[in-house]
Amino acid sequence: MSALDEWLAVLWLPLTLDFMRQALWMGLLVGTVCAVLSCLIVLKGWSLVGDAASHAVVPGIVLAWLAGIPMVIGALVSALCCLLGAGLIERNCRIRPDAVLGIAFTGFLALGMVLVAMVPSDVHFMHILLGNLLGIEASTRYQLIMTGIVVLGAVALKFSDLRLYCFDPQQAQVVGLNTRRLQLLLTILLTLTTVMALQAVGVVLVIAMLVTPGCTAFLLTRRLASMMMVASASTWLSVLSGVMVSFHVDIETGGVIVLIQAFLFLLAFLFAPGRGVVFQKVRVRRAIRADREAAQEQEEVYRRHRV
């Protein structure tokens, strides 16, 4: 065995382990769902709504566990209560929507933390707050797979309507679509995605999974479908390398995944063709040089005419 082979064997070691493979599969599933939804969230300008949803699910998850019903359902109900409640307050009050949302979701998070402290079983809920791909239980895994299928299926079926709703809700209304229903659909999909992302990275970092892949892909693409594919690809790369790195270096998987996503965004920000900073700088510099050359040529012509 050569040195390279040995090195590769060590590198791929995590993939030969059953629990690591499972963590990776779950990471890829969660990542794909987050990436697809993140495109819609970023384009709709709902980043804060995503953040709110991720914090507002916590009391629901604790109560669902106490009541013995699936965690996803508790999370969905709790987040919808928070978001719809905030919407209701916002319509009847002169405070800005972002402030109302801030009050609502921190209130829900605080309630969740109180409940976590009151309920004796502690280990289980630490997963919610910190997230851990390696520690997903079998029953949870089943719920996540079903949720992922539902979200991706709904986006595939309603792709066109969701795109129109995000781009131009007024047009959606004028051509006879039910925009309230579309808003509710997007809110539900967002909440379900949040529940999935929680498992991977925990409450604090969910917003990264819901925003970063979409932003990276936005800089690289010109159509929504390709944006979703690029976002997914960037997330797969982050999850795969995140799982590998965290195995070898022994640090928190979620943190590594989010860090790599941020790094990929930075690369896109700098080097994206068309929209990247470097590309734009080069383009401006070229244009300036062309202007200068044209001016010199003009001067030449004048001079020749004078002589």
């Binding site: 066109s160 129109l164 047009q171 693409t221 010109r222 159509r223």
Partner: peptide, 13 residues
């Protein structure tokens, strides 16, 4: 990220 064709098609939605 929509094309001109996509936008005009939104009239038919």
């Amino acid at each position: 990220p929509v094309s001109v064709w996509d936008v005009v098609m939104m009239g038919r939605q």
